[in-house]
Nucleic acid binder design. Structure first.
Length: 132
DNA sequence: CTTCTTACA
DNA sequence: TGTAAGAA
Protein backbone atom coordinates (compact mmCIF):
# COMPACT_ATOMS: atom_id res chain seq x y z
CA UNK A 1 0.00 0.00 0.00
CA UNK A 2 2.80 2.28 0.60
CA UNK A 3 4.43 3.71 -2.39
CA UNK A 4 8.08 4.06 -1.61
CA UNK A 5 9.17 6.80 -3.85
CA UNK A 6 12.84 6.83 -4.80
CA UNK A 7 14.17 5.71 -1.50
CA UNK A 8 17.85 5.58 -2.20
CA UNK A 9 20.28 4.66 0.55
CA UNK A 10 21.75 8.13 0.29
CA UNK A 11 18.70 10.28 0.20
CA UNK A 12 19.52 13.57 1.80
CA UNK A 13 16.74 16.03 1.32
CA UNK A 14 18.14 18.46 -1.13
CA UNK A 15 16.54 21.04 -3.31
CA UNK A 16 17.52 22.84 -6.45
CA UNK A 17 17.73 26.58 -6.37
CA UNK A 18 14.19 26.95 -7.71
CA UNK A 19 12.73 25.22 -4.68
CA UNK A 20 14.85 27.28 -2.35
CA UNK A 21 13.62 30.38 -4.08
CA UNK A 22 10.03 29.46 -3.36
CA UNK A 23 10.80 28.47 0.20
CA UNK A 24 12.78 31.55 1.09
CA UNK A 25 11.20 34.06 -1.23
CA UNK A 26 14.66 35.13 -2.27
CA UNK A 27 15.91 35.61 -5.80
CA UNK A 28 18.45 33.24 -7.28
CA UNK A 29 20.76 36.19 -7.49
CA UNK A 30 20.54 36.78 -3.77
CA UNK A 31 20.92 33.14 -2.85
CA UNK A 32 24.05 32.82 -4.97
CA UNK A 33 25.28 36.13 -3.69
CA UNK A 34 25.06 35.02 -0.08
CA UNK A 35 26.93 31.91 -1.00
CA UNK A 36 29.83 33.86 -2.43
CA UNK A 37 29.96 35.67 0.85
CA UNK A 38 30.31 32.42 2.74
CA UNK A 39 26.96 32.53 4.49
CA UNK A 40 25.92 29.21 3.02
CA UNK A 41 27.78 26.35 1.40
CA UNK A 42 25.51 24.25 -0.74
CA UNK A 43 27.01 21.15 -2.30
CA UNK A 44 27.32 20.76 -6.03
CA UNK A 45 26.00 18.08 -8.26
CA UNK A 46 27.91 16.49 -11.05
CA UNK A 47 26.89 19.20 -13.42
CA UNK A 48 27.99 21.90 -11.04
CA UNK A 49 24.45 22.30 -9.93
CA UNK A 50 23.82 23.68 -6.46
CA UNK A 51 22.31 21.23 -3.99
CA UNK A 52 20.64 22.87 -1.02
CA UNK A 53 19.95 21.03 2.21
CA UNK A 54 17.16 21.94 4.64
CA UNK A 55 19.87 23.43 6.82
CA UNK A 56 20.84 25.72 3.99
CA UNK A 57 17.24 26.82 3.67
CA UNK A 58 17.09 27.51 7.38
CA UNK A 59 20.22 29.59 7.11
CA UNK A 60 18.77 31.49 4.21
CA UNK A 61 15.67 32.19 6.25
CA UNK A 62 17.80 33.37 9.12
CA UNK A 63 19.83 35.56 6.81
CA UNK A 64 16.66 37.03 5.47
CA UNK A 65 15.31 37.96 8.88
CA UNK A 66 18.66 39.28 10.03
CA UNK A 67 18.96 41.28 6.85
CA UNK A 68 15.52 42.65 7.50
CA UNK A 69 16.66 43.69 10.95
CA UNK A 70 19.21 45.96 9.40
CA UNK A 71 22.35 43.84 9.53
CA UNK A 72 24.77 43.56 6.66
CA UNK A 73 26.17 40.34 5.26
CA UNK A 74 29.34 40.70 7.26
CA UNK A 75 27.46 41.05 10.51
CA UNK A 76 25.34 38.05 9.72
CA UNK A 77 28.44 36.12 8.88
CA UNK A 78 29.86 36.90 12.28
CA UNK A 79 26.72 35.69 13.98
CA UNK A 80 26.44 32.48 12.03
CA UNK A 81 29.91 31.07 12.57
CA UNK A 82 30.06 32.10 16.19
CA UNK A 83 27.60 30.76 18.76
CA UNK A 84 27.94 33.99 20.69
CA UNK A 85 24.50 35.41 21.46
CA UNK A 86 25.93 38.82 22.25
CA UNK A 87 25.30 38.51 25.93
CA UNK A 88 27.31 40.39 28.49
CA UNK A 89 26.25 37.84 31.01
CA UNK A 90 27.49 38.94 34.41
CA UNK A 91 26.84 35.47 35.67
CA UNK A 92 28.04 35.72 39.22
CA UNK A 93 27.11 32.14 39.62
CA UNK A 94 28.40 30.84 42.92
CA UNK A 95 29.23 27.42 41.61
CA UNK A 96 26.11 25.58 40.63
CA UNK A 97 27.10 22.64 42.74
CA UNK A 98 24.01 20.56 42.45
CA UNK A 99 23.14 19.12 45.85
CA UNK A 100 22.84 15.55 44.80
CA UNK A 101 20.94 13.27 47.06
CA UNK A 102 22.33 9.90 47.95
CA UNK A 103 19.86 7.24 47.01
CA UNK A 104 20.39 5.37 50.25
CA UNK A 105 18.11 2.42 50.76
CA UNK A 106 16.36 1.85 54.09
CA UNK A 107 18.44 -0.69 55.93
CA UNK A 108 21.88 0.51 55.07
CA UNK A 109 23.92 0.63 58.25
CA UNK A 110 26.64 2.73 56.73
CA UNK A 111 24.96 6.04 57.20
CA UNK A 112 27.33 8.73 58.32
CA UNK A 113 25.71 11.85 56.97
CA UNK A 114 22.96 12.38 54.50
CA UNK A 115 23.52 16.07 54.22
CA UNK A 116 25.02 17.75 51.23
CA UNK A 117 28.72 18.34 51.51
CA UNK A 118 27.87 21.96 51.13
CA UNK A 119 26.35 22.12 54.59
CA UNK A 120 28.93 19.95 56.23
CA UNK A 121 30.52 22.93 57.90
CA UNK A 122 27.25 24.24 59.21
CA UNK A 123 26.35 20.77 60.30
CA UNK A 124 29.58 20.37 62.21
CA UNK A 125 29.02 23.66 63.88
CA UNK A 126 25.54 22.68 64.91
CA UNK A 127 26.68 19.32 66.20
CA UNK A 128 29.41 20.97 68.16
CA UNK A 129 26.99 23.22 69.89
CA UNK A 130 24.65 20.38 70.58
CA UNK A 131 27.33 18.15 71.84
CA UNK A 132 28.49 20.72 74.23
C1' DC B 1 13.67 23.26 -19.73
C1' DT B 2 16.54 24.56 -15.49
C1' DT B 3 20.75 26.15 -13.71
C1' DC B 4 25.53 28.25 -13.99
C1' DT B 5 28.81 31.94 -14.89
C1' DT B 6 30.12 36.36 -16.28
C1' DA B 7 29.22 40.93 -16.99
C1' DC B 8 26.77 45.28 -17.49
C1' DA B 9 23.41 48.57 -15.86
C1' DT C 1 19.71 43.61 -7.37
C1' DG C 2 17.92 42.64 -11.95
C1' DT C 3 18.80 40.89 -16.29
C1' DA C 4 21.15 39.17 -20.75
C1' DA C 5 24.04 35.90 -23.19
C1' DG C 6 26.07 31.50 -23.96
C1' DA C 7 27.29 27.02 -22.15
C1' DA C 8 26.18 22.77 -19.65
Amino acid sequence: MNKVKTMNPRNDSIYPISVVMNMTNLSARQIRYYETHGLIKPARSKGNQRLYTPADVENLLLIKSLLDKGLNLDGIKAIMNGPKPVETATTTAASPTAPLFNPQRPGVPKLTSLYPVNNQEALNDLLKHKHK
